[in-house]
Amino acid sequence: LRTVEMKKGPTDSLGISIAGGVGSPLGDVPIFIAMMHPTGVAAQTQKLRVGDRIVTICGTSTEGMTHTQAVNLLKNASGSIEMQV
Results as ranks from 00 to 15, higher is better:
residue 60 T to A: 11
residue 53 R to W: 08
residue 38 P to F: 05
residue 33 I to C: 05
residue 33 I to W: 04
residue 36 M to H: 04
residue 44 Q to I: 06
residue 77 A to L: 12
residue 59 G to C: 04
residue 17 S to P: 03
residue 28 D to N: 11
residue 50 V to T: 08
residue 74 L to S: 05
residue 26 L to W: 11
residue 68 T to G: 13
residue 33 I to A: 05
residue 55 V to S: 08
residue 73 L to W: 02
residue 34 A to P: 01
residue 64 G to H: 12
residue 31 I to G: 04
residue 73 L to Y: 05
residue 41 V to L: 14
residue 6 M to F: 11
residue 32 F to Q: 10
residue 58 C to D: 14
residue 22 V to S: 08
residue 6 M to L: 11
residue 26 L to R: 07
residue 80 S to N: 14
residue 70 A to M: 06
residue 8 K to N: 04
residue 71 V to K: 13
residue 85 V to R: 05
residue 47 K to L: 11
residue 3 T to R: 11
residue 18 I to F: 10
residue 40 G to M: 04
residue 12 D to Q: 15
residue 2 R to L: 14
residue 82 E to P: 07
residue 41 V to N: 02
residue 85 V to A: 07
residue 71 V to R: 13
residue 46 Q to Y: 00
residue 20 G to H: 03
residue 47 K to W: 04
residue 47 K to Q: 14
residue 8 K to W: 15
residue 44 Q to R: 14
residue 81 I to D: 02
residue 1 L to W: 06
residue 57 I to R: 04
residue 66 T to F: 06
residue 70 A to R: 04
residue 47 K to A: 11
residue 76 N to C: 12
residue 5 E to T: 15
residue 34 A to S: 15
residue 34 A to M: 07
residue 37 H to I: 08
residue 81 I to P: 03
residue 74 L to A: 04
residue 17 S to R: 15
residue 61 S to Q: 09
residue 39 T to A: 13
residue 73 L to H: 08
residue 6 M to H: 04
residue 13 S to C: 14
residue 51 G to P: 00
residue 62 T to H: 00
residue 61 S to V: 06
residue 75 K to V: 09
residue 14 L to M: 07
residue 68 T to C: 10
residue 65 M to W: 05
residue 59 G to Y: 00
residue 5 E to H: 15
residue 80 S to E: 12
residue 69 Q to E: 15
residue 61 S to A: 09
residue 72 N to C: 10
residue 56 T to F: 00
residue 45 T to R: 01
residue 28 D to V: 03
residue 66 T to G: 06
residue 65 M to A: 03
residue 6 M to Q: 00
residue 20 G to E: 05
residue 73 L to P: 03
residue 78 S to K: 14
residue 44 Q to T: 08
residue 14 L to G: 02
residue 38 P to W: 03
residue 45 T to E: 08
residue 22 V to T: 09
residue 7 K to E: 13
residue 16 I to F: 10
residue 79 G to P: 07
residue 70 A to N: 00
residue 11 T to S: 13
residue 78 S to R: 13
residue 54 I to K: 02
residue 14 L to N: 00
residue 20 G to K: 02
residue 22 V to A: 09
residue 22 V to E: 07
residue 80 S to C: 11
residue 83 M to A: 05
residue 83 M to D: 06
residue 26 L to C: 09
residue 29 V to C: 11
residue 59 G to P: 02
residue 8 K to H: 03
residue 5 E to K: 15
residue 44 Q to G: 09
residue 20 G to I: 01
residue 46 Q to M: 11
residue 72 N to V: 05
residue 76 N to H: 13
residue 64 G to R: 09
residue 58 C to I: 04
residue 46 Q to R: 13
residue 75 K to P: 02
residue 76 N to V: 08
residue 2 R to W: 09
residue 12 D to G: 12
residue 49 R to M: 13
residue 31 I to V: 11
residue 44 Q to P: 03
residue 31 I to H: 06
residue 52 D to R: 03
residue 66 T to N: 10
residue 49 R to F: 14
residue 35 M to A: 15
residue 38 P to K: 08
residue 53 R to Y: 11
residue 84 Q to Y: 01
residue 3 T to Q: 07
residue 20 G to Y: 03
residue 56 T to C: 07
residue 31 I to D: 06
residue 32 F to R: 11
residue 56 T to S: 15
residue 52 D to C: 00
residue 15 G to T: 03
residue 70 A to G: 07
residue 8 K to R: 11
residue 3 T to V: 10
residue 5 E to A: 11
residue 52 D to L: 03
residue 65 M to S: 01
residue 47 K to C: 10
residue 49 R to D: 09
residue 39 T to K: 14
residue 65 M to V: 02
residue 62 T to R: 02
residue 60 T to F: 12
residue 67 H to Y: 12
residue 45 T to M: 06
residue 60 T to C: 12
residue 36 M to G: 03
residue 7 K to R: 13
residue 43 A to P: 03
residue 75 K to N: 15
residue 27 G to L: 00
residue 80 S to I: 14
residue 76 N to K: 13
residue 7 K to Q: 14
residue 84 Q to L: 06
residue 11 T to F: 15
residue 37 H to M: 07
residue 75 K to F: 08
residue 13 S to P: 10
residue 24 S to P: 02
residue 52 D to G: 03
residue 68 T to R: 13
residue 2 R to P: 01
residue 1 L to R: 01
residue 50 V to H: 03
residue 29 V to P: 01
residue 82 E to V: 14
residue 66 T to Y: 00
residue 9 G to H: 01
residue 37 H to P: 05
residue 35 M to G: 15
residue 30 P to D: 07
residue 78 S to P: 10
residue 24 S to V: 00
residue 35 M to C: 14
residue 62 T to V: 10
residue 62 T to L: 09
residue 54 I to P: 04
residue 84 Q to C: 10
residue 54 I to Y: 02
residue 77 A to C: 14
residue 50 V to W: 02
residue 55 V to K: 08
residue 67 H to I: 10
residue 79 G to D: 12
residue 36 M to S: 03
residue 47 K to H: 10
residue 46 Q to H: 11
residue 18 I to V: 11
residue 34 A to D: 14
residue 82 E to R: 13
residue 60 T to P: 00
residue 82 E to M: 10
residue 51 G to E: 04
residue 43 A to D: 00
residue 5 E to M: 15
residue 19 A to F: 07
residue 43 A to Y: 12
residue 60 T to Y: 13
residue 70 A to H: 05
residue 80 S to Y: 11
residue 83 M to N: 06
residue 29 V to M: 10
residue 6 M to I: 12
residue 72 N to Y: 08
residue 33 I to F: 00
residue 27 G to M: 02
residue 52 D to E: 04
residue 16 I to D: 03
residue 26 L to H: 12
